[in-house]
Amino acid sequence: MPPRIRLQTRQLKVRIYHHQIPSQPCFYASLATATTPAPPIEQTIHSVSPIARFPPTQPPSHKPPEVRKSQLHREYQSLLKSSPLILIFQHNNLRAVEWMGIRRELAIALRKVDAELAAAGQKDLYADAIKIQIIQTGIFASALRVVEFYNPETTELPTQHPSNPATASSAQIPNVKPTPEDSRLAHGLSRRAHEAASDRKKKLDLAPLLSGPIAVVAFPAVSPQHLKAALSILSPSAPNFPAPKRKASPSYHEPAVQNGIQKLMMLGARVDGKAFDQEGTKGVGSIPGGLDGLRAQLVGMLQNMGAGVTNALEGVSRSLYFTMEGRRYMMEEEEKGPEEKKDVEETKAE
């Protein structure tokens, strides 16, 4: 059947309009030849690499890792592990201005110590690493429990991680599930760490200190010189830890700083994992000449001991010699003795 509406053959033609914009050349997608890049040979001979269950730097943790609490816990653990000397202060309602002044004075005093050490040719300069910081007391106590009571054995986590490009796709990787229940996870926020630390029968020495408003000063090494400088700023006491003189550092004697220091109370310290009270800490701070001074003392002591040992050993032979000599002398005397007596008798007889 012919179409009802007659169409002219001219109208059936498909028209292609050439709207050529002078600045833009015209391309037709339909005219382009589609070139799909061939897959690399690696992909064709290996299968798809195994699936990463979690990023290697973010193993699943017991508490949700994104909350502030968990992050602080992690931060405090690393602080406790990396600093062998931590001073613990209570701060009673310090104002921001007072904190600012105290921080400034502490930094100045520590830099002075560093300058002295650098002048003496030492390389243990810690001034920039030592700061006073306010902590969340409960979280800090919990982190301390983990650091003290949780000693993970060698972790059984796979050394080959799926997301590592070096891992062969055929590698047999144990299925580490992205759940905190997995017992192979052994990091500080893991469930194992939580269980080890939540054993209430274990008591911390520092536990009674960790309540109320607490600030800590963490030192990256047990350095008596730096400790002395910090103590003389933060809790000055007359003979060993004098506050800087008014002439030497006038900014220390500003009312803001002085008011702040009155409100700081030193409670104790943690030195090499042991709890120290105020006096013990001052004892550590008053080691003359720092660790080098201690070493010098030890060397001196050992040398004295060596001299003593040689004296003692020599003494034995010497005393033996003397006794033998003495004995010889005595025997000679005895031999001589009767003859002399005879002489005496002879003279009497005459």
């Binding site: 209570q90 020495d205 009674p208 200190l209 309540s211 109320g212 408003p213 109370m265 104790g268 009270d277």
Partner: peptide
């Protein structure tokens, strides 16, 4: 004595 648990009251009072 800050190492005694009884000291908590005194410290809270000061705070």
């Amino acid at each position: 004595n800050p190492f005694s648990p009884l000291s908590k009251t005194a410290r809270t009072f000061l705070a």
